[in-house]
Computed example of a mutant assay.
Amino acid sequence: MIKYHKKRIVLIKCITTILVACFVTILAANKSVSANLIPENGPLDQATATVGQEMRNGSDHTLGNSFATKSSSSLGTDVFNIGDSSRPRVDAVDVASYQSQMTLNDYKKLKNLGVKTVIVKLTEGATYTNPAALTQIKNAAAAGLNVDVYHYFTSSTISGAKKEANYLLNFLKKNNLNKKILIMNDVEDDSTQTTQIGANLNAFWNVLSQAGYKQHGIYTGASYLYRDAAAKTVGFKRTWKAQYPYHPKAGTNWQTNYGAWQFSPTAKIPNGDYTGYIDVEMDYVNLFTKSSGTSPIQ
């Protein structure tokens, strides 16, 4: 009877150990976090975040695509309204085709909430153009907002970088965009991860500069391996860096060594016509306002 009891205890312990191990594995799989979301200046318990947007698949990427949690999570960055005084100040927002339903009224609301700049996605790689870009540019300018633009970079070679720059340049020229406009290059895609990222980006910038578009900036994130090399092509104060705390709070600012900080992809326009999410940023050095202002089209 005693031997049987001991065997039973051992069996129960083994089953318990197996169940605990399975639970830990499942939990880890559901709450994995990208390196971008581990705070450099904040507590670890604010590190978990998921970009809560449906816009993370296909060939049309938005800013922060690679900085989202790679697997699904029951958590995610929390949702809040732009203008909430308990949150970091929102100086700028960025939009892509996924915000194509935003109306002129939405842009006016952003202006009234203290937002200064809208950064519009134009192109990606050498084949994709945001079909809503011109409307978004015109609406933002009509609302009295500064307008900047961005390109999503995908190349790993100098020749590829030049091809992408010329593709973007074609859009800029065709639509008479102001040569003073700030052009941000979104450097986050895994395909761009190479030790020659600096040379690739400089080749990209040279094409634009030779055509008269000399206002350049970089967008990247904490998880991008060659982020410093990318930033050095324009300078750290002209670099806009993404890192998402789970619950961003007013007075708790990250990435202050850079020009701007993208702190959430899940903000909303209160009582807006557009009810989806929008990316928000804090501009530390007026990076986004030193551009063509409210005259993005010549």
Rank of each mutant, 00 (worst) to 15 (best):
R227A: 14
V33T: 15
D91S: 15
S156K: 11
L287T: 08
I218P: 03
G64H: 01
F80T: 12
Y98D: 11
V93N: 00
T275N: 11
G259K: 10
N36H: 07
G198W: 01
M55Y: 01
T220R: 06
T154Y: 05
A229K: 15
T62D: 07
P39N: 15
K13A: 13
K138H: 08
G259I: 12
N286D: 14
Y219K: 03
I2F: 09
A29W: 15
M184W: 02
E164H: 08
D148R: 02
P245I: 04
D84V: 05
E40H: 09
S156T: 14
L11A: 14
I183H: 09
Y98T: 08
A267C: 04
N65D: 13
K268Q: 14
M1G: 12
E281Y: 09
D190W: 14
L19T: 15
L27G: 13
P248I: 08
E281R: 05
M282T: 15
G276F: 01
V285C: 08
Q46F: 03
A28T: 10
G235T: 10
A260Y: 07
P245S: 12
L201W: 04
Q262Y: 06
T50K: 12
K290H: 11
T117P: 01
T48G: 07
S32Y: 10
N176H: 15
V187H: 06
G76W: 04
Y107I: 02
I158R: 10
A250T: 13
L37I: 07
M55P: 00
I181H: 01
A260N: 12
S223Q: 07
L168H: 00
T239M: 06
I12E: 14
S291L: 01
N105T: 14
S291G: 05
P245R: 08
P248K: 11
Q101C: 03
